[in-house]
Design a protein around this nucleic acid. Sequence first.
DNA 1: AACGTTTACAACCGCGACTGC
DNA 2: TGCAGTCGCGGTTGTAAACGT
Length: 288
Amino acid sequence: MGRGRAPCCDKSKVKKGPWSPAEDLRLITFIQKHGHGNWRALPKQAGLSRCGKSCRLRWINYLRPDVRRGNFSPEEEETIIKLHQSLGNKWSKIASHLPGRTDNEIKNVWNTHLKKKKSLMKDANAHGVETWMTSSSSSSSSFNGLGDQEGQGSVAVRTDELCHKVVLEKKQDPPTENELKEASSSSSSNSSAISNFSNFDTQVNISSPREEMDSLFDFRGPCEVLHNATYGVKNQDVRMSDEVVEIPLESDADFWDLLDNLESFQPQELEVEASQSSNIGEECERES
DNA sequence: AACGTTTACAACCGCGACTGC
DNA sequence: TGCAGTCGCGGTTGTAAACGT
């Protein structure tokens, strides 16, 4: 009997399922401080009870500064269709042609919408009906039923050598097309997302279904890290707050303890030693 | 209002590719 | 050259929200 493929991590000790805001913040803060040189080692160093692959996926698809969310424009749809025709299911290649879009997102859009549209188009063409492309503009707006038009909440994490600052900001209006483009270009000019963190003004934009603290720690929506720009996020029932929470660096452990305690309202699957989970980055610094 | 079905999307899994030793 | 460790990709699954009856 062969040894087979070694598992990437100890499945019994890693947490699975949706990421909590506290985990997101933990991951963001760690990458902000230390980068992500080694995904496998990152969860332990960051005090996360997650598989390294899971951290990577979360970062790439949702937390990265240059990730752009929201509806796909008709032009983007068209691009995806065309690229899919020539490249097939090479989602990462297709994604490379669409700045700010992730392969996972494109794959989902293809599987849920575009594939259907394509077959509809075939049927329509067979019956001499107007092509789907002409109607894609209106239908695309319904891609995300949760839409961007609702309220927007954002949390800015400003980090420098002295403190971490979590700022709950009020943002009334959804971002304009220009804002999105600007955000996309400013961040995509850096090949590494980490380079975006060299500046202090990194923001974390979250949707928040609950108010104030609840909104921070118990939301289900995406958590987006932004660099000098605010992207749209999808929301369902968002309330705003202007509250500012400052997190001194030396209080990191207390802060993470607080987050962990708040998370205890949710079912706890992970069995992380509190001492380990609250010492973000310490281990890493000790090593260096 | 309750229940069943469909849709949308976040996340997981397995495998191939790549890299360093 | 082979092996082990790691990364990244694509397929698939799980689940909450939306929708229909």
